[in-house]
């Protein structure tokens, strides 16, 4: 049996299936990216693995043990960082270490926290509070906190979505380096196929909801360390990228009922508002004298 296993998992909110027939097996040390649209149920999926939600049917097992509640064996990095605002970088991380390794000597806990702060290159900012940090730095704290608990599996829930393109690229590089150093099992949830392909061993699309389910899994066989520029030459990269994007976009279109509607676009020209409107009488609109009539597919 695989390290992390989801079997026929269904999750229902109210009358709707959010997730339907989710089957997923992840091996130890594997980096898997799950890519999907906003609102498709990606976060629900990660919450099921985290134990923050229970499935309505089916099972979620880690190391052959069923997941029934959250625990320190699964480290989570949330999109909104979830740091305690009144604690410094160091204190935020120490808090997690202190909870998980209760019987360690204080000096050891301290050393352990420092090690992970250094891993995400935040040692110069260790005394700062979250509000003194940029978004990218906050997310690094969040990553360090999750890793410091030495979880068996790291769950990343769109960790880089709130960041600008440049910071996102820098943090992707950093995640990639950290993963190379630790070889932890990672599940990354993202809406960006490029991010998934760049970081993961395997990328799996989640179809557009409701009743979202996992699509075929694409193996990313690009040697590491990966270079953002060089992979543009890699035919394998181009192929996966095309297939994943196409699968995602198609999964959405299939769900839309489409009706056709006849629409008329009047052929009138806009008026120049810099000229004063005529005081008396109504002038007529300028016409291009071609009535555009077309049928449009309505989604």
């Amino acid at each position: 049996m695989a390290f992390l296993e989801l079997k026929n998992v269904n999750k229902i909110f109210g009358p709707h299936f959010v997730l339907k027939d989710i089957n997923l097996s992840i091996e130890k040390g594997e980096f898997v990216a799950i890519v999907g649209f906003s609102g498709a149920g990606k976060t629900t999926l990660i919450n099921l693995i985290a134990g923050l939600l229970r499935p309505d049917s089916g099972t979620v097992t880690l190391n052959d043990l069923e997941i029934t509640a959250p625990g320190p064996d699964r480290g989570i990095v949330f999109q909104n960082y979830s740091l305690l605002p009144w604690l410094s970088v160091y204190e935020n991380i120490y808090l997690a270490v202190d909870q998980v390794f209760r019987n360690w000597a204080p000096a050891k806990k301290q050393q352990h926290a420092e090690k992970y702060i250094a891993m995400v290159n935040l040692s110069p900012a260790r005394e700062k509070r979250p509000h003194e940090l940029s978004g990218g730095m906050r997310q690094r704290v969040s990553v360090a906190r999750a890793l410091a608990m030495e979880p068996q599996i790291l769950l990343l829930d769109e960790p880089l979505f709130a960041l600008d393109a440049l910071t996102r690229a820098t943090l992707q590089d950093e995640l990639s380096r950290i993963w190379d150093e630790n070889k932890k099992t990672v599940v990354l949830i993202t809406n960006d196929p490029d991010e998934g392909i760049y970081l993961a061993d395997r990328i799996i699309p989640l179809t557009a909801g409701p009743s979202a389910t996992l699509g075929p899994s694409f193996k990313v066989e690009i040697p590491r360390p990966r270079d953002r520029k060089a992979i543009n030459h890699d035919p394998h990269f181009k192929e996966i990228r095309r297939d994943v994007i196409e699968f995602m976009l198609n999964s959405k279109h299939q769900r839309r009922p489409s009706i056709t509607k006849r629409l008329v676009l009047p052929d009138i020209e806009p008026e120049d508002l810099r000229h004063p409107k005529p005081m008396a009488g109504r002038s007529l609109p300028k016409r291009r004298s071609e009535i555009k009539e077309e049928t449009v597919e309505v989604e």
């Binding site: 629409l263 008329v264 009047p266 009138i268 508002l273 007529l284 609109p285 300028k286």
Partner: peptide
């Protein structure tokens, strides 16, 4: 409504609907 003030209401609505 601003730019096509010379046109009738029906036509203006048609533009938006289109």
């Amino acid at each position: 409504d601003q730019v096509f003030y010379t046109a009738g209401k029906q036509e203006r609505r048609e533009i938006a609907e289109y």
